[in-house]
Design a protein around this nucleic acid. Structure first.
Lengths: 263, 263
DNA sequence: GAACTCTCATTTGTCAAACAAATAGGAGCA
DNA sequence: TGCTCCTATTTGTTTGACAAATGAGAGTTC
């Protein structure tokens, strides 16, 4: 299969997208610089405008470019922000776990090890802002009226604050995969199979350990939480596999498939 | 800025892409299932075929779909593979470091902590295959005739084998960001500022520690390597910042911008 | 009857020309 | 000077068409 991709040339829109992408990565197109107009690009590459537009949409899908209409408009090179990159990592990861590429216990083990790796730096570099966020989320999680969705979201924010406390952008970036991508999807898959109280208690103790600069205590709490979660994950994973047996063959209906009318 | 995105509706191609993406994620479109033809989609969404195609290209950019021509052709939902997901993470990360979103010392610190996190699992789960790969790469790195590019590539393969040894797909997936994305770019940025011999020696001792199931020794070697690299990174970072001062304003020339002739 | 070749219908890939919509800048005017 | 309106530019979208790939079936030959 991969051989086929080598011998037969990629479609024109792919070639053009790659060429522009390369120009951006190598710095020939600088950040915030304006690209030629679509018509000019079409002329230069000897293709039609729709083909150029397909290429640009490929790049836009990765947030490499932005477009504006009007005389001062055009297509511009986007400055890659850490935030947008994190979002892309997160959606990629969420897709994979939602389509069962990863099993829940695997996610649990990975998250455990990765968050553990953050503890020493978090203890060393944490600032009041992150501590405030953590304890605020703990208090929110203690509210029994909190919806399941909000509890899961708060859980994610708590763990993100832990990673933020390292004050290392690369760690924050990399762990977006598990914290903002995998964990939300996992949370929604398992929230029926666990209790809130133990988690909140663990969060509070984790906060206290970070606050008191006690690395080993923090690691201990984290291990405890992951041991607890692993049991829930096992139950949820079993349920997931059972569910797959009797999945109903839903007919294809794509959302938004209707009269858009006001075109 | 974000407000603007909320009030003004996204372009049609974005709306359609999101709708189809949602259908995939929610399972209404199953893996390897065939989507309606482009003309059918255009009719259903009440848009033209080029608009549908732009939407499909957005999804294709994320490897969510594939297309084939012919009677049995069409557009199909891709099974997301761990490998493709890793590639996407890696390219995203490589883009960010090549455009100076991250500083080299930050990358060093993150990589150190993250690889450390892999050591316990690697020691517990390593198999002969990974050990063989590691020692093979060490031997290759000892060859003084090896080109700089090949040495850097071997370095990446060695560290990837370390992560592979954990036999945890989520860890392998997540660390692709640093191992396959950041590290190659960093290597090319710093290879002039370090010696090979210490690195190869460290790699050999790291291999031996993993082989002998000695966690603390492995972590020790890793710390040593990161301490050594940090100095190189600092020098390279200083050079990078100096280079930015006098960057020449290259004129825009996009590669492949020529007569494609055989269209 | 089996196997081979050829034609054909289907579907994506690409092109061409046009209109719609947004918008910045300038002409005209008070 | 400052306001309004017009206009040119550029992306967004439509329509219609042709090119290229390719699987399936008809027809032919052994």
């Amino acid at each position: 299969m991969s051989i086929k991709y080598d011998i037969e040339p990629a479609s024109l829109s792919v070639q053009i997208a790659d060429a522009i992408r390369e120009a951006i990565v190598e710095g020939r197109l600088k950040i915030d610089e304006r690209l030629p107009t679509e018509q000019e690009l079409a002329d230069r590459f000897n293709v039609s405008r729709p083909t150029v537009r397909e290429a640009l949409k490929r790049l836009a899908a990765h947030n490499l470019i932005r477009s504006r209409r009007g005389p001062a408009g055009g297509t511009f090179v986007n400055r890659p922000s850490e935030e947008e990159g994190r979002a892309e990592l997160a959606t990629t990861a969420a897709l994979m776990v939602s389509l069962d590429v990863f099993s829940l216990p695997e996610v649990a083990e990975a998250r455990w090890q990765l968050e553990q790796a953050c503890i020493p730096l978090a203890v060393a570099n944490r600032r009041p802002a992150e501590l405030d966020t953590m304890i605020a989320e703990v208090r929110r999680q203690e509210d029994p009226d909190l919806s399941d969705e909000e509890f899961c979201a708060s859980d994610v924010r708590f763990h993100r604050a832990l990673v933020d406390a390292t004050h290392n952008p690369v760690l924050r970036f990399t762990l977006a995969t598990v914290i903002e991508g995998l964990q939300p999807a996992v949370n929604m898959a398992v929230y029926r199979f666990r209790e809130r109280a133990p988690l909140v208690d663990q969060h509070r103790r984790l906060y206290e350990a970070i606050r008191d600069e006690d690395v080993s205590a923090a690691i201990e709490v984290l291990s405890e939480q992951m041991t607890y979660l692993r049991a829930s994950y096992d139950r949820a994973q079993a349920w997931r596999e059972g569910r797959d047996q009797l999945e109903d063959t839903q007919h294809l209906t794509i959302a938004g498939e209707k009269e858009t009318g006001a075109v």
